[in-house]
């Protein structure tokens, strides 16, 4: 396993896009969060505003950068045919998936940590964003889970483009579709089961009653999706012809 881990680390390290995408995650997340806090004002007395969530607006874009990085790990191998060499070198295929997951998680946690902490700090320039552990830590974990979910998805569909399409759909189209059902009970139910919509509850610091999930529960739903996806990926990787 240690050899496979080292091997996957070398691959990630020598992929030209890796460093840029991690930098992109930090810049996009902080930049958009800062912009959102700068342009949003609350003048009405009954104004509903969650400064923490507002400062983390950039995560909406940052999660796609993370997903792109993650799907590349498998997507590139399938598009070039490199996967056959990888699996010929490591016939215990689940170790390849595990190693990719591990080497992906480290850098993503690090970059997401900088991005999320930076967003909160930047947001304090215009809003009274409190320093709270739950949304900061939780959002970092959220981004890591999105990365792992995307990784598993890419291994299942064996295409970076298809995988990123699904992630984009879940991030942007799914909440709209859920809202379009009209019926509040259904909207709530759909927001509760969607991996991204459930997971994003972790960014909220206001009244949990208004949320689809309590913050950590929502993240738990995403974690379940991620575990299920990785497990499915492992089984398919083992059973399918390379």
């Amino acid at each position: 396993m240690s050899g496979v881990l080292r091997s996957e680390w070398t691959k990630l390290r020598t992929t030209s896009g890796t460093a840029w995408l991690l930098l992109g995650l930090v810049v996009a997340t902080i930049g958009i969060g800062w912009l959102a806090t700068a342009v949003t004002t609350c003048t009405h007395s009954d104004c509903f505003l969650d400064p923490t969530q507002l400062s983390l607006t950039g995560v909406q874009l940052g999660q796609i950068v993370v997903a792109v990085l993650a799907v590349m790990l498998f997507g590139n191998e399938y598009s070039t045919g490199l996967i056959r060499l990888t699996l010929a070198a490591t016939p215990r295929r689940w170790t390849v998936l595990a190693a990719k997951a591990l080497v992906l998680t480290g850098p993503v946690l690090l970059a997401a940590g900088v991005a999320v902490a930076g967003s909160v700090v930047a947001g304090r320039q215009y809003q009274s964003v409190p320093f709270r552990l739950t949304p900061v830590l939780g959002t970092v974990i959220y981004l890591a889970l999105i990365a792992l979910f995307s990784l598993g998805l890419a291994a299942i569909v064996r295409s970076a483009a298809v995988a990123i399409g699904i992630v984009l759909g879940l991030c942007y189209a799914y909440p709209l579709l859920a809202a379009a059902t009209g019926d509040p009970a259904w909207v709530r139910r759909l927001l509760q089961i969607g991996p991204t919509t459930a997971g994003q509850n972790i960014m909220s610091t206001v009244d949990p009653e208004t949320l689809a999930h309590a913050p950590w529960n929502g993240l738990g739903v995403l974690a379940l999706w991620t575990a299920g996806t990785l497990l499915t990926a492992a089984v398919l990787l083992h059973r399918r012809d390379a």
């Binding site: 080292r6 091997s7 060499l85 990888t86």
Partner: peptide
């Protein structure tokens, strides 16, 4: 091959595995 990877790095990940 991953086109952006050098010949040496291509062999290096394989060696590590």
């Amino acid at each position: 091959l991953q086109p952006s990877r050098t010949a040496r790095d291509h062999l290096l990940w394989l060696a590590h595995s």
